[in-house]
Design a binder for these strands. Structure first.
Lengths: 206, 206
DNA sequence: TAGTGTGAATATCTTCACAGCT
DNA sequence: AGCTGTGAAGATATTCACACTA
């Protein structure tokens, strides 16, 4: 595994660059300089160049980077060339909002199914994605070979659902529950902790 | 400003420690060791001790940290002793879910008002918080002296609303829009970019 | 003995600055 | 002339390891 020494934050930035590049494609730009793209992404030019250099040489000295090709390479690096199916667990308030939220689809993720203890309730919230009983989770996950899950359940049950997801073959969890999940080390957990983000702001604001 | 050399991530961790401490308070624990608390928070003991040491000495050698007092000091450091009012801008799908979401209240934040171009629609989504027309934003912000805002509007209009928030005295923005906001340097922006988090996972999962 | 507080060592990440293409 | 690619320097953050103390 050669990507061992790529800064984790660089991966985040890659996503941001990709988004900026998509805008440039729409504008019909053919090339972009590191300084222009860096500005759009809110980073320093040198950092952008270094981030890209981890994956190869894509630019032309004196000219810049080819917009289209660079976007394609980032998609490739991020594993976004063929799109990953995703499931969502816990279609409560936040969960069902995420299901209606267009942001994931816009970035090319397909939420193929949702699971909840009370599927009826979720459906009544206007969710389009099929919502199944949480009991069917394992069989459906395995049938579809799903590896990415969004977890939006209350704190106290988050760990046990995470365990079940992992056992069913999920290796990436986007966790909205305000809980530190324990998972085997081959599983990646990404925490989005809304209250924590607000709290963090409040430190800088007073 | 002496907190200049405190790792930014340490502030995040402080919030996590605080959450764990609250649980310990409920359980009636009087003291906790760095290793126990670190385990609960998902960090190494040495890191926990270092994080706390930035703010003073709170532990007793051979014994551990007093749960209650430590929680109080963290609240103090995070500026959470008196609670900050927060507003939410953009009560669409995601925004109104956040308004119904109990997580903020549970952590002691009060969302005092929401603003949207179409307040009726938001109210019809079952939002309890008063929703005002986006036009009234400035006057109400200034009246209440609000300094924290949650921004959940579509990308294209995010920057202009951020500008208005800043002009009206907001100094901390929790930004859910998939856009890099430009703000004066005294303003802190905290980005929560849902699609980006998923994309990040997909890199590690393939 | 159990467990904090911390300097020093290490690891990680960012920025500089410039050689080298086009 | 303009802009990339990158080694080296600098800045930050984490971890170790142990002196110290209740």
């Amino acid at each position: 595994m050669e990507r061992i020494d790529i800064p984790k934050k660089a991966i985040y930035r890659l996503s941001i660059y990709h988004r900026c590049l998509k805008r440039l494609v729409e504008l019909g730009e053919e090339t972009v300089s590191s300084s222009a793209l860096a500005k759009a992404a809110g980073v320093k030019p040198a950092q952008l160049r270094k981030d890209l250099a981890y994956f190869g040489q894509f630019g032309t000295r004196g000219l810049g980077y080819p917009v289209e090709a660079l976007a394609a390479m980032i998609r490739d690096v991020l594993g976004r060339e063929r799109l990953q199916p995703v499931v969502l667990v816990g279609a409560g308030n936040l969960g069902s909002a995420l299901l209606r939220y267009q942001g994931f689809q816009k970035e090319g993720f397909e939420v193929v199914a949702a699971f909840d203890a009370d599927p009826e309730a979720a459906v009544s919230r206007g969710v389009q994605v099929p919502v199944f009983s949480e009991k069917e989770m394992e069989e459906r996950l395995q049938a579809d070979g799903v590896r990415l899950a969004i977890l939006c359940v209350p704190g106290p049950i988050a760990q046990s659902l995470a365990n079940r997801l992992v056992a069913a073959g999920v290796t990436g969890i986007l966790n909205f529950s305000p809980v530190v999940l324990e998972v085997p080390e081959e599983v990646v957990v990404n925490n989005v902790d809304l209250a924590l983000e607000l709290e963090h702001l409040s430190f800088f604001v007073r």
